[in-house]
Simulated scan of single mutants.
Amino acid sequence: MTGDSRDARVPLPSRTSDARLVVVVRAPAADAYDRVLDVLVDAGIRSVELTLTTPGTLAALPRLRERYDEAADIGVGTVTRQDELSAAIDAGARYVVTPITSAPLVEAAVAARLPIVPGGLTPTELFASWSAGAAAVKVFPAGRVGPGYVADLRGPFPGIEVVPSGGVDLDGAAAWLRAGAAAVSVGGPLLGDAFRGGDLAALRERTARFVALCRREPA
């Protein structure tokens, strides 16, 4: 696309940007969300990515937004098709995340004024999404490259906003943020066994550590 798409870039919601932490939530089914989301949001999580690999996510999204909207941004991830993007928009997603590089998905999200974070790994993939108007680009799987990749990308692509995803634990989150990542995307290392009947007090403690580490300090 032309430079017009960059001028029309839709940034991430301010709560997500300030939190610098997106929790990727994969549940066995959508009716399992509330028990875990209650703990996450109460412990300070301000951005949650619900994945389409969880059955019933889009049907549950309006109810979940009504429940959590005052405290957290609820986005939709694992979007790979135009019909999924349209359904996420209709259901009220605050932002969408893809595991792939797809210019048509980015263009459609930008046209709908919805922030989108497309996935990719190579400089070509990431720059294609960024130049098409993405709010940020998701480096996935982040463990294959490491935090130094932020500086590597910003050499030829100054200003690119990077969100690492895939195996990012507490130490990794600290390293990526020090390197200049806009936010970190965290799943298993924070959620642990929460969806398998795990200790919710332990989940709250893990969440508090991630929130404290990632929260942007006031200027």
Rank of each mutant, 00 (worst) to 15 (best):
D18S: 12
K138M: 00
D152G: 07
A219K: 12
R63V: 00
S129M: 09
D199F: 07
D73W: 00
G192K: 11
V39R: 08
A202D: 15
T53L: 11
L170W: 10
S14G: 13
G192S: 08
A87K: 03
G3V: 14
A91T: 14
S86R: 14
Y68W: 14
A219M: 10
E70Y: 10
P218E: 04
D83M: 01
G75K: 03
A136S: 13
V117T: 01
A174W: 00
A87L: 04
G197N: 05
A136Q: 02
F127C: 05
L58Y: 13
L121P: 06
A29S: 15
E125T: 00
P99G: 01
R215W: 05
P189G: 01
L177C: 12
P218G: 03
L85D: 07
V41A: 04
P218R: 02
L126F: 01
A88G: 06
L52R: 10
V150S: 05
R209P: 09
E205W: 03
V139W: 04
G44E: 13
D34Y: 04
L200A: 04
Y68D: 15
A182Y: 00
R216T: 15
R6A: 14
A109M: 07
A202K: 05
D199A: 09
G166A: 07
V150I: 11
A8E: 15
G120S: 00
P218A: 01
A136V: 07
P123E: 06
T51D: 13
R204F: 08
G155Q: 02
L52E: 04
L37V: 09
E66P: 02
G44W: 06
A179S: 15
V184L: 01
V48P: 04
D169C: 07
L190M: 02
G143D: 13
T80D: 04
E70C: 06
A175S: 15
L190G: 07
G92N: 14
A173F: 05
S5C: 01
P189V: 00
V150P: 08
A175R: 15
V110W: 00
I116F: 06
V162E: 09
S185R: 05
S17M: 11
W176F: 11
C214H: 03
R206E: 00
R63A: 07
L105W: 11
R206T: 06
E107V: 06
A175I: 09
A71P: 06
F157A: 14
T53C: 09
P104F: 09
V163K: 04
V117L: 13
V22R: 13
S102D: 13
G44C: 05
A183M: 10
V110P: 04
I45S: 03
R35H: 11
S5M: 12
E125G: 01
E84K: 10
V162D: 03
A91M: 14
L37D: 10
E205L: 13
Y95I: 12
R94V: 06
G187L: 03
V41G: 03
T98A: 02
E70G: 12
S86L: 08
S102Y: 04
Y68C: 12
